[in-house]
Simulated assay, not measured.
Amino acid sequence: MLSTDTKGVFAIAPTPFLPDGSLDEASVDQMTEFYWKAGADGLTILGIMGEAQKLEPEESMQIVRQVIAKADGRPIVVGVSAPGFAAMKRLANEAMEAGAAAVMIAPPSALRTDDQIVGYYAQAIAQIGRDIPFVLQDHPQATGVQITPMVIRRIVDDNPSCVMLKHEDWPGLDKVSQLRDWEDSGDLRHISILCGNGALFLELEMQRGADGAMTGYAFPEMLRDVVDRSLAGDLDGAQDIFDTHLPLLRYEQQPVIGLSVRKYILKKRGAIAHDTLRTPGPKLTDRTRADVDRLLMRLAKFDPRAAI
Rank of each mutant, 00 (worst) to 15 (best):
T244P: 01
V227C: 14
D225G: 01
M297L: 11
S260C: 00
P220I: 00
E205A: 11
L200N: 06
L235I: 12
G233I: 13
L248R: 11
S161W: 00
A199N: 04
Y217A: 01
R189L: 01
D236H: 15
I272Y: 14
M214W: 00
Q207C: 02
Q239C: 05
V226R: 01
F242I: 01
L249S: 13
D286Y: 03
L299H: 00
D240T: 09
Q178M: 14
D184C: 13
L277S: 07
V261S: 04
L235H: 05
G172T: 08
A273E: 10
P160F: 15
M297R: 13
S177P: 00
G198S: 07
A290I: 04
K263D: 04
C162Y: 03
K283P: 00
D181I: 11
D158I: 02
H274Y: 06
P282F: 02
C195T: 15
F219I: 00
E221G: 15
P171G: 13
W182Q: 09
L179C: 03
L188G: 01
A271Y: 09
P247I: 14
R269Q: 14
L248F: 10
R278C: 14
R208D: 08
L295I: 03
D293N: 07
A290C: 01
M164I: 06
G212K: 03
L249Y: 09
K268R: 15
S185M: 15
R289Y: 02
T244F: 04
E205W: 12
I272A: 02
I241Q: 04
D293P: 11
H245N: 09
C195E: 10
D240A: 15
G237V: 07
R289A: 14
A232S: 11
I191E: 01
R278K: 11
G209L: 03
E205T: 10
M206A: 05
F242L: 00
D275M: 01
S177Q: 02
V261R: 09
